[in-house]
Design a protein around this nucleic acid. Structure first.
Lengths: 337, 337
DNA sequence: CTGAAAGCGCTTACAG
DNA sequence: CTGAAAGCGCTTACAG
């Protein structure tokens, strides 16, 4: 492989000159610049990134880290969508994207991850913190690597979804349709950052609509489709007069949908079901789900933009991404009685 | 950050010794080894990967590349599942995982990608070649980087799914249930590697079952859910006597399911619908889809295993991963007439 | 506007 | 079994 020196020799200049021309340093004759560029092209020179990294201290690599907390982590559409937004930005700026999925070992993160963070290989880190996992950013901050956190506590620059608004939007939607007897399919407290704000938003909207949130029937699932079906079964049995089920994520809403089918309840005519997240599958259920979209692509995009600002020495402000109500076929006014 | 030299000084040995101890070279006194290891621990030394890469020529980075051919590439469950298998292996071996999504530009791949390949940053490459995209591996091979291809033409070591068997399995399943009037929802020829074998498998099984494949009604979709619905509508209108729809992927099968619901056809009682791929959503449709699982996790795992063999100087053989018939609720014997 | 030279932090023949 | 020293391919003050 040709090196800087080969280029220099061919162009009849010093390696310093080649290096500087290539990094767009000003103060060079048009002639010199052209000589260098020509030589580069002629011998097909491509800089060795490891060498550049060693001498400059910058690697052009940023890492997206998400804790490996459950085995379907790679199937989480939210993560992937965020990743896509980040990838697009990196591609634009000539950065390379490394992904790391630290394993949780006795309350700490695994050795591999620690080594990677301290290896000097990373110019920046974007952490997916939607699952509370404090220790993941600690080594990054200690090492002084620019970092932005998506979701989670804003210990550093962060971007997160406006879950409070999401809760308000979905509850308002139900109230506007005329629902009053609403069952909530929820999850255990604080299993996930953001859930608290979401619940608060739902409660605030209920209150504003003259509904007592605390008296609404609730069932606790675990985000899975199966748990959604179970919760729906339980709620509908204990409260046959419910006209709507508000689910804290789409997968549980899909389970509720299945259960409704099983019970012969027609959605949305006899029962309204709403989700949260707007995963791809939400658009293709029968009927398609009314839900809240978190704009994950935008989230990824904003996170990388913030990271690049940090890398430029700027001090970006944390950001809250608005969410969007997506009305589809699973919600309608309650049947007259 | 502490360097090798700091460790050496503290341990009272040379940097060469530290380096060798750390890379598990034999021929060292237990005493020396301990001294070094202790010093490493005491000052919290972590090797600088860029320096190591420059001097050793190995970076401990492998890249997974998949062409950015459509905007939902990051939502493709197949890709992600493969990625998960690869990630697990890399994590085990202390390798880092870089992802790159080369853009197609006027028949060639983008400059960023080319530079990355030639930058010396990559010890190995795993290419997702399920979309024919010849040029993606060319620069890798030219540069002499160990590579394995998933799907696609086995230009190098490759691992691919046994789509012929998949076609046979799904068609045999329909035949065994007693279906004869089967509509095929297919895709344009050779849009995707593997489709040819899949179709051949279907045809072979049909023939073996005494069915003339060529006379079966067909409609051509584009893999999307919407196209599946359209195709189903078209087939069922022109051939109301069809008892089954065999779809070349799950998303189209989901569309067909929607169309069946719209038409008031009960699945599977009045119409059997089968998919292919076993994406996560396939298990949660109503009814859940009978389909073919490609074992993507295994594919990713095998691909990385092969890559690591290549890195060890071995010459692994290309591999074909068996597929699996997953029978769920969307298939049943045809209704008696 | 351009270049000589040190240095980034490792690994690796080569000696002994 | 251990070490001195060259070298990997760049970048970057520092001179001029």
């Amino acid at each position: 492989m040709p090196t800087l020196e080969d280029v220099a020799r061919r162009a009849g200049v010093s390696t310093a000159t080649v290096s500087k021309v290539l990094s767009n340093t000003p103060y060079f004759t048009e002639a010199t610049r052209n000589k260098v560029l020509l030589a580069v092209k002629e011998i097909g020179y491509v800089p060795n990134l490891a060498a550049r990294a060693l001498s400059s201290g910058r690697t052009q690599i940023i890492a997206v880290v998400f804790p490996y907390v459950y085995d379907a982590i790679f199937a989480d559409p939210r993560i992937l969508c965020v990743l896509e937004g980040i990838d697009a930005e990196c591609n634009l700026r000539g950065y390379n994207l490394l992904i790391s999925t630290p394993r949780l070992i006795e309350g700490s993160v695994d050795e591999n991850y620690l080594q990677l963070i301290q290896s000097g290989y990373l110019d920046g880190v974007i952490a997916l913190n939607h699952v509370p996992f404090a220790s993941i950013l600690d080594p990054v901050i200690k090492k002084g690597i620019p970092a932005v956190s998506i979701g989670g506590p804003p210990s550093v620059c962060s971007v997160s979804s406006d879950h409070h608004a999401g809760g308000v939007l979905i509850m308002e939607h139900l109230l506007e349709l005329g629902h009053q007897r609403i069952g909530i399919i929820t999850v255990p407290d604080s299993i996930n950052t953001g859930t608290e704000q979401l619940l608060q938003g739902i409660q605030d909207a209920a209150q504003a609509g003259g509904l007592d949130f605390n008296s609404l029937p609730k069932a606790v699932g675990d985000y899975s489709t199966a748990s959604g079906a179970d919760c729906a079964a339980q709620l509908l049995q204990q409260h046959p007069d419910l006209t709507a089920l508000l689910c804290l994520n789409d997968r549980m809403a899909m389970g509720a949908l299945q259960e409704a089918h099983r019970l012969g309840l027609r959605v949305p005519e006899q029962l309204t079901i709403t989700g949260y997240d707007d995963i791809p599958a939400a658009a293709t259920t029968v009927p398609p789900l009314t839900t809240i979209n978190q704009r994950s692509l935008t989230t990824g995009y904003e996170a990388s933009r913030m990271l690049f600002e940090l890398l430029n020495g700027q001090k970006p402000e944390s950001k809250i991404i608005p969410v969007e109500l997506v009305v589809r076929g699973s919600s309608a006014p309650p049947a007259r009685r």
